[in-house]
């Protein structure tokens, strides 16, 4: 791997990506086209996030990768290894210690700080894509701020299901201007999109980068009489007892018994270390 440049991409490509990132930060929520490169992992497997991380990392950074909130899921492991190999940066599983965190599908439970960067992997950056498949048309809708159709979708949800039936990738309006897809995070995470850290979103296959600067207003779309609700399973974590974290439901046996555990593995671990215990703490920790 020594034949490759620091963090795999050549400097010219990194500069191109950094320009896109800066433009994204200057126009919050706007999807900046960028000439995505073919990466040594498949499109759809985090190539956008990887390119943004590659352009963001410096040798002094400490890098953390999560997928579904966990550090030990296969794709997280694979991406972490990629940067250990190509950038030689320090890696960590502790949210607190990381300066750059690449994520797929979750925002960490712990509050992020001003000196941290959260990089999202994005499969489909266009929140209007499934209402209007044409790129030419959706770009026009964004530029003219024509978002009526987005609310038609939510209206249809309520009229058919009695509630807004979008559970993840729940659309938001950023800084009062652009409607944005927050990537497929559960809507439980949406309120956390207003944070102190820089948030960068990379969609490799679709060639788009967008960003939410620190302390930016991010509003989940809703109706006055059907307000947005951040929901999670109505349980505490069975390992650490947390009441405020997003939970995975794990089927334990053939009888269908279940346990609920934090999807953010670092959050759960640090709580247990501090002495918190859930219903099945002894078994689960084994």
């Amino acid at each position: 791997m020594s034949a490759y440049n620091f963090a795999y991409l050549d400097e010219q490509t990194k500069r191109m990506i950094r320009r896109a990132i800066l433009k994204g930060l200057a126009v919050p929520g706007y999807q900046v086209p960028f000439a995505s490169r073919e990466m040594p992992m498949p499109y759809g497997w985090g190539t956008g996030g990887v390119q943004v991380s590659a352009a963001t990392l410096t040798p002094d950074d400490t890098f953390k990768v999560i997928d579904q909130g966990a550090d030990d899921t296969t794709n997280a492991v694979s991406i972490r290894k990629f940067f250990e190999k190509t950038a030689g940066v320090a890696t960590t599983e502790e949210t607190e210690m990381a300066t750059v965190i690449q994520t797929r599908h979750r925002i960490p439970e712990a509050k992020l700080r001003e000196d941290q960067i959260l990089v999202y992997q994005v499969p489909i950056p266009e929140p209007l894509r499934f209402l209007e498949p044409r790129e030419t048309e959706t770009r026009k809708m964004h530029s003219l701020e024509e978002y009526g159709l987005m609310h038609v979708k939510l209206y249809e949800d309520i009229s058919q299901h009695g509630a807004i039936s979008t559970a993840y990738a729940y659309p938001v309006k950023v800084s009062g201007r652009y409607v944005m897809d927050p990537s497929p995070i559960p809507k439980f995470d949406n309120p956390k999109l207003e944070m102190e850290a820089i948030q960068l979103f990379g969609a490799g296959r679709e060639q788009r980068i967008y960003a939410v600067p620190p302390h930016t207003r991010v509003v989940s779309l809703d109706f006055e009489d059907y307000p947005f609700e951040a929901t999670k399973a109505n349980h505490p974590c069975d390992l650490c007892g947390a009441e405020d974290s997003y939970l995975d439901e794990v089927i334990m046996d053939d009888a269908g018994n279940r346990m609920f555990v934090c999807s953010d593995t670092d959050y759960c671990r640090s709580r247990r270390k501090a002495g918190h215990q859930g219903r099945m703490a002894t078994e689960g920790a084994a």
Binding site: G69, T73, R106, P123
Partner: peptide, 19 residues
């Protein structure tokens, strides 16, 4: 790439749908 990415874990989103 995009076709095969649906093999990756999606359990967080699935959980949200489940609820």
């Amino acid at each position: 790439g995009f076709l095969e990415h649906i093999k990756l874990p999606h359990y967080v989103d699935f959980q949200s749908e489940l609820e």
